[in-house]
Nucleic acid binder design. Sequence first.
DNA 1: CGTTCAGTTGACCATGATCAAGAGTGGTGG
DNA 2: CCACCACTCTTGATCATGGTCAACTGAACG
Lengths: 257, 257
Amino acid sequence: MPNALTRRLEEYTPLADADRAELAHLCSQSIHTVGARLDLIREGDAPRSIYVILDGWAGHYRTLEDGRRQIVDFAIPGDLCDVNLFILDRVDTSICSITRLKVAEVGREEFRRVITNFPNITTALWWVELVSKSIHREWIVSAGQRSARQRIAHLFCEIFLRLESVGLTDGFACDFPLTQTDIAETTGLTAVHVNRTLQELRRDGLIVFERRRLTIPDLLALQGAGLFNPNYLHIRRLNRHTDAGREVREGGIKEGR
Amino acid sequence: MPNALTRRLEEYTPLADADRAELAHLCSQSIHTVGARLDLIREGDAPRSIYVILDGWAGHYRTLEDGRRQIVDFAIPGDLCDVNLFILDRVDTSICSITRLKVAEVGREEFRRVITNFPNITTALWWVELVSKSIHREWIVSAGQRSARQRIAHLFCEIFLRLESVGLTDGFACDFPLTQTDIAETTGLTAVHVNRTLQELRRDGLIVFERRRLTIPDLLALQGAGLFNPNYLHIRRLNRHTDAGREVREGGIKEGR
DNA sequence: CGTTCAGTTGACCATGATCAAGAGTGGTGG
DNA sequence: CCACCACTCTTGATCATGGTCAACTGAACG
């Protein structure tokens, strides 16, 4: 069974045996365990290493001067933090563990060696980076345009599909370790309102969510509730129950080029 | 006087004469003019070329099924759209011109040649890409946490500094071709509320904004009003009037790693 | 078995949305 | 050159989504 990073990269680019071996090697060199709810990296730090998430969830966040906090991304198994390494001299976002984490640390030189010797891996990493940017854009859309109900439904759809793409779902269910406060800090809502909205989604039969476990009985229905269209995730092999076939193009766009 | 792209890249990485010559060459090969308010690229298209903005503003946006639209980024002179080119098979965001544009079209092969032969340029392009991602994160923070007044103040600060970094400001003033509706679609507010908030900012003397021209008499004051901290822009040579020296680190972050 | 954190509920409030109408302003064609 | 049209900006009245504050319940963990 391949590790999460390999699985993730193969979502995008075919890998050779040598690539897979290299990735397995990378992810077995320097493995750390981090307890839940600890900062891995803080805004303003100089970047040191890249971490590959092998198990558990982490969150990228920024804080405002008045203390409010916004989660801007999640890192689940197969994700990397922080590719900034070679470029920016300061990390611009903090990262904290949400659950207990298992991470592989990849040093600067190690990473550079892989980049120069394994073009398939490099391409796949580019892909991951661009998909991550696309996800950021969708979060801007969520925070800017979607209602509370839509935002939460959308978040659940996104995370479910991301987990599925690395093999971490189980039929209609998945582990989902976010607290209601986490969801609030992700969606730009308050925890109180998240609570009420979750009850509404439960009442409507769109989700079952208890004891850190999420079940989505009808993903298409939840996608409808969240105005969710999976194209922005750029997942190649979308499963039966998703909406990928749906036509993206709207009717009303005006003018051509 | 260097073109906008060169100026932009030199913000990040020292370039050699050969690099500069190559950039000048790139930006003079295939120049197009595009009228205002036209789509350059639409969500779902297959990527064709990269465009370098030489003059004018463009906007990246996504639309929801119910027709609402969210601008997720601006492209000003020196910016590129879309580096997706080699990786993703579908463009995930539409781009439209805000003003009349002058763009340089760079083809796939041309771009690949530059990437392989000019490592300084490649590094600088990486940098640009990561800064763009950092800006996306800040927009998530804005939409999620900032009030209407803070969002608009923040947007003005960001754009002013981005324009300044490519030499497009004139003392305390700059061209600013966004309509109030554009600002609304950027900040996730309604045009009516943007109007009222702008009046408030004007009344407080924080901005002068008329006839597509923005003046910021006291940038530090506007930064305060927007909870703006320029670090996320990763601009090297920040000017006298910005707030870069301010300590980023908050007091209250708990626990170490 | 007590402490802490997550979740829940209720009452009230405020920010910003919605709807509607009117006033500039600029560009275009007759 | 003027008239018209379209778009942007402005203002007012009303409404709703989601925020705030506060108290209480329940589960987990040492």
